[in-house]
Design a protein around this nucleic acid. Structure first.
Ligand SMILES: [Mn+2]
Ligand SMILES: [Mn+2]
Ligand SMILES: [Zn+2]
Ligand SMILES: [Zn+2]
Lengths: 162, 162
DNA sequence: TTGTTAATGAAAACCATTTTCATTTATTGA
DNA sequence: TCAATAAATGAAAATGGTTTTCATTAACAA
């Protein structure tokens, strides 16, 4: 028996997100495992095709259609965030890992497309957002579930090229 | 001589945005006039096709291609904002009128797609944003030129249908 | 008015995403 | 363990908003 594998399996247990799937009545499949694997191993904001290419290395049978469908599902159950950074394709990012949230917003360079995650000033932001959300909810009778904040400008490198 | 017309013309002068065009070396054309006319007469967030249809009533010769090209130009020179509210087509809005800015952000209903402009809490927001932008500019050496804030949730009507 | 060149419109191309449909596979309960 | 069943998948085609191409038109400086 391959001891290493056995031990690793025992030590790891099923991935933390299995519960989310079973709970919602969805099946755990190789494409889904692979896509979550890819997303959990990067800090980047990958497009559907980039995810497809990464998955394709280990699982050449997985198709781009399935990547799109899986991403839609993951967004739907809240495991993944979908963003538009203005490059005419959707970008995806794991919403949080097993350890918990890592809430952040984005800085987008309008020249080269670079995207920077930032977590500074989040505290003040969160406070303002809560206040704003409360006020808006009352005034417009809106039930706010989410928000999007992005800053646009020129990054370090593109600034010096001006 | 049609006195009414003459007087109106004298009273109005050339539209306020003509200067912006000439200054940037762009020509003033019927399609461009018509598109700005449409945008200045609505509070809605129109799609390219909706603008095209509205322009088409008075100027049937104007094509959809020109609408796209003009909108791109208007966004480029800062007269128009382009938004993505998640309905898979861009939405456009005049950035400000002759009287000055009317800065606002958006509340988007994820059920029916309704978009509400809001201007409340903008003061506090602006303060936080300035602070945040300053901090981010320093930390990441980013030159911030713009920001996007949107809240998502369920509107009045969609809430009661749940 | 005229010459230059930007702007335009129709049609075709583009391309990220979605749909279709026949096939495969995860799950369940006998 | 093994069918039964419905969910999930992959290939190919379709979709639809947007962009490109290219011949024609028109803004405007001289
Ligand atoms: Mn991010
Ligand atoms: Mn608005
Ligand atoms: Zn850059
Ligand atoms: Zn609604």
């Amino acid at each position: 028996m391959p001891r290493g594998l056995r031990m690793r399996h025992l030590a790891m247990g099923p991935p933390w997100w299995h519960g989310r799937f079973h709970g919602a009545g969805f099946r755990i499949t190789i494409p889904r495992e692979a896509i979550l694997e890819v997303l959990s191993k990067t800090q980047k904001h990958l497009s559907a095709e980039e995810i497809y290419l990464a998955v394709h290395r280990l699982h050449p049978a997985v198709g781009l259609t399935t990547v799109y469908r899986t991403l839609e599902l993951l967004v739907h159950i809240g495991l993944v965030f979908k963003f538009d950074f203005g490059d005419s394709r959707a970008r995806y990012e794991l919403s949080s890992g097993p350890k918990g949230a890592r809430h952040h917003h984005h800085l987008v360079c309008t020249a080269c497309g670079r995207v920077i995650d930032y977590t500074d000033f989040i505290d003040e932001e969160v406070e303002l957002l809560q206040q704003t959300e409360k006020g808006l909810a009352k005034k417009y009778n809106f039930k706010i579930t989410n928000h999007l904040i992005q800053f646009y400008g020129l990054c370090d490198k593109c600034r010096s090229k001006e």
